[in-house]
Design a protein around this nucleic acid. Structure first.
Length: 243
DNA sequence: AGCATTTGACCTCC
DNA sequence: GGAGGTCAAATGCT
């Protein structure tokens, strides 16, 4: 933690800005997560990680859709046969950017036994995605962030701490520092996503951990904030609900 | 050998 | 008849 303390001391201004910013972005998702506890039958979502939403899917078809550049892939819950789980989703790439953005349409809710654990895993991965997107956009807006004396990795450490804290609040446990959480984050990196454009990779099995006292949010009032306006994440997540 | 993915064929709806 | 969704045999991977 020495490195992190140095970072906090040397750049508390932007760090606090990052805290506020990431908290704002991730808290928005936390609210959405709470809303979604009321089950819906269909929803659309834009994501950089269409194959890592905490559930296990089996691909059963692929089709070129009229007017689309990229094919639409059809997935069914792995437990469709075993437990009759009706959940399905289809995934289509929406652009050729790096990383590519995917539109995922979820249909029906999971009735398989892993629903609770998967909900937990799905929320953690979503928060990771939002935090990553926020960080990535911040780096584009403020190039000097990437090269600041405190080091790029330390900013990510801050992100991990925030993500972990939010998960502690939402789920009562912590994955950001666990191997499972780390694996999920690594699997969602842009480079790997680009490589796996149409590969359905297996999901990890969530292993809930006890809440830890080691992770605490230490806010420091900055002498001045170097951060910009809060991120607009409207482009990142879109939910449409039917039924 | 068993499981997952691919892909052309088939089905349903408009 | 065309488009979207699903089936199932063939194929690939571990």
């Amino acid at each position: 933690m020495a490195k992190r303390d140095d970072y906090m001391a040397s750049s508390s201004g932007s760090s606090n800005g990052a805290h506020k910013r990431l908290l704002q972005d991730c808290s928005s998702y936390a609210q959405e997560h709470a809303k979604k506890r009321v089950r819906i039958s269909t929803r659309a979502e834009y994501t950089y990680a269409p194959y890592h939403d905490g559930y296990q899917w089996r691909k059963y078809g692929q089709k070129m859709i009229r007017g689309n550049t990229y094919p639409r892939c059809y997935y069914r819950c792995t437990f469709h046969q075993d437990h009759g789980c009706p959940a399905t989703k289809h995934v289509e790439q929406t652009n050729s950017q790096d990383p590519p953005l995917f539109r995922v349409i979820y249909t029906n809710e999971h009735t398989c036994s892993s629903t609770h654990a998967s909900d937990y895993m799905a929320s953690s991965i979503h928060i990771q995605q939002i935090a990553n997107a926020s960080l990535r956009k911040a780096e584009m807006e403020i190039p000097s962030l990437t090269h600041c004396s405190a080091g790029h990795g330390l900013i990510k450490e801050e992100k991990d701490a925030i993500v972990s804290s939010l998960l502690t609040v939402i789920n009562g446990c912590d994955v950001a520092t666990s191997d499972v959480g780390r694996a999920a984050v690594q699997e969602s990196t842009p480079a790997l996503m680009a490589r796996n454009s149409y590969e359905a990779t297996p999901s990890v099995s969530p292993v809930p951990l006890e809440a830890s006292d080691e992770l605490k949010m230490d806010f420091v009032e900055p002498p001045e904030s170097h951060w910009l306006e809060p991120l607009d994440l409207g482009w990142f997540i879109e939910y449409t609900q039917t039924g």
